[in-house]
Structure formats: C-alpha cells, structure tokens
Design a protein around this nucleic acid. Structure first.
Length: 257
DNA sequence: ACTAATGTTGTAGG
DNA sequence: GCCTACAACATTAG
C-alpha cells in the first residue's frame, strides 16, 4: 500500500511522538505470522524514527524495529484497536497501534541493522541525475518493472511509477532509454514524490497517516486508476495494461514506445 | 462468481 | 547475473 510519500508522511508524524519514549509492553492480538518478531523489544528506548525506502525504522538504544506496511498496514499513534489490529505497543507515554488487514506487512526486531535492507538500491530522492542515468542505462528490461524493483531503486511503487512515467512521457514498456529521457524521468520522479509528500500521500483504498487521516494526492493523479478517462494533457483515453503482473496506466498518445 | 487492489519473495526457465 | 512468468501470502470492494 504505502509507497515512499506515504511512509515519509507517517515517519514525520510519528517521530516527535516516539523519540525518547520507552517500550513498556508489546501485545500481539490474534496470530502473527512467523515472519514477525518483536522480542526482546520491551524496555528499549526509542532514539530515532527514519524512512528507508518503504521501510520504517524505529531505532532504539538496544536494537531496531523494522516495519514494512505491505499493502494494508497502518501505524497509528494513540489509535483505537480494530478487528485488524495485530500489535499494540504500550509506551511509557502513549501507545502505537499496528493494523494490517491483509497481513502482507512485517514488523521485526533486530539487535543491529537488518540484513534485508542492504539489498535495496539508492533512494530516489537522494540519487544524483548522472547516477540515475547510469542505473537505468545499465539495464535491459522494461522501464516500469525496473522502477518497481526495490533492489534497483528503493521507494517507488505502482502509483508513483505510473505517475512519473506519464510526467516524463515514457511508455511503461520502453527499454534502453536515452540519457536525455532518463534525465527527464529522474526529474519527474523527484517532482512527483515531492509533490505527493507535500499533499501527505495518496489514499486510494486503505492508506491513512499516523493520525488516521487520509492523504490528498489521489486528487492530483493524472493516470493511475484512470482508464477510459481523458488524458489531462492531450485528451486521449488513458489505457490500462498489465506489466509484470501489475496494472499499468498510461496515455497512448503522450507516452509512445 | 470473478477480478483487482498502494507489495515482496521464492521458484523456475531462458 | 539478468530478465520473465507465476504462485503464494490474506482480505476487501466493485
């Protein structure tokens, strides 16, 4: 569910509440899948809250809680429990609720930096244009699956990949794109992510921030979920095709192969 | 009943 | 190693 802008919004909301707090109790409601591990996080004091790609790192004196929200995960500050509440973290002041209907999300405690993060590519908001061009030109595959591959670039998901490709006027199946187009794509990615963060992310079905509020960027989507609607740039009908087992939305006139 | 949904991972084949 | 396809995970909404 949450991509880079949604995770960034949650992290910014959460940090001032969590930093300095101590975890007093972790209560698991129902069954948590074996991929989750909380012990021994009780007693740890939170030092910082950071985003790493789509991951949320709650760094403590004794280790780090690594959270990935999957498709429907939520972290709610002072939240009420729901039928999908999986974990309630009681802190010395306040409480953090982890909700996840589909349970694709993961919460894991580790004593050091979790190894899974080392395999991720650079952050799209931190990478230099020349580096991005080299990254894209070093690959042979279709551009959209490339953008979704977290080992290539960490943080883009289905919404922002489509929105960035539209803004850069690149077909989602394009391969071996020129340096000029790669540069334009990099600019489009940065622009769309920054704009989405400014609007507190996109609420399509499940996403809410740490206070339970919806984002507003869904109102500014140009192509994502808009099949059959006119392209805001040229009026042609937006198409939906399937690429790498995911829906891909694009304008057939603005984004030529 | 069927399909699609903001995601990742493992397996298999070319 | 890279690329593609598919299944799996679990649940809801149209």
């Amino acid at each position: 569910m949450p991509e880079l802008p949604e995770v960034e919004t949650i992290v910014r909301d959460l940090a001032p509440h969590l930093v300095g707090r101590r975890i007093v109790e972790t209560r698991v409601l129902g069954r948590l899948s074996a991929a989750n591990c909380l012990e021994p996080s009780v007693g740890a004091q939170i030092c910082s809250v950071r985003r790493y790609g789509k991951y949320i790192l709650i760094e403590c004196d004794a280790g780090v809680l690594t959270v990935h929200l999957g498709m429907t995960g939520k972290l709610l500050w002072q939240g009420a429990t729901s039928p999908y509440t999986r974990i309630a973290f009681q802190l010395d002041e306040g409480r953090l609720i982890y909700d996840d209907a589909r349970q694709f999300g993961r919460v894991r405690w580790s004593s050091g930096q979790p190894a899974e993060l080392e395999r991720l590519g650079p952050d799209p908001l931190a990478i230099a244009p020349e580096e991005f061009i080299a990254l894209v030109q070093g690959r042979r595959g279709q551009i959209k699956p490339l953008l979704l591959n977290q080992r290539v670039l960490r943080g883009l998901g289905n919404i922002y990949a489509d929105e960035a490709l539209f803004r850069a006027r690149i077909h989602p199946r394009a391969r071996c794109i020129s340096a000029a187009r790669a540069r334009r794509l990099h600019q489009a990615i940065v622009a769309v992510l920054e704009q989405a963060i400014a609007h507190r992310g996109s609420s399509i079905s499940d996403y809410v921030d740490a206070e339970g509020r919806q984002g507003a960027f869904q109102h500014l989507h140009q192509v994502y979920g808009k099949q059959g609607r006119p392209c805001p740039a040229c009026g042609a009908g937006i198409r939906r095709i399937e690429i790498a087992q995911r829906g891909a939305y694009y304008c057939p006139r603005c984004q030529r192969r």
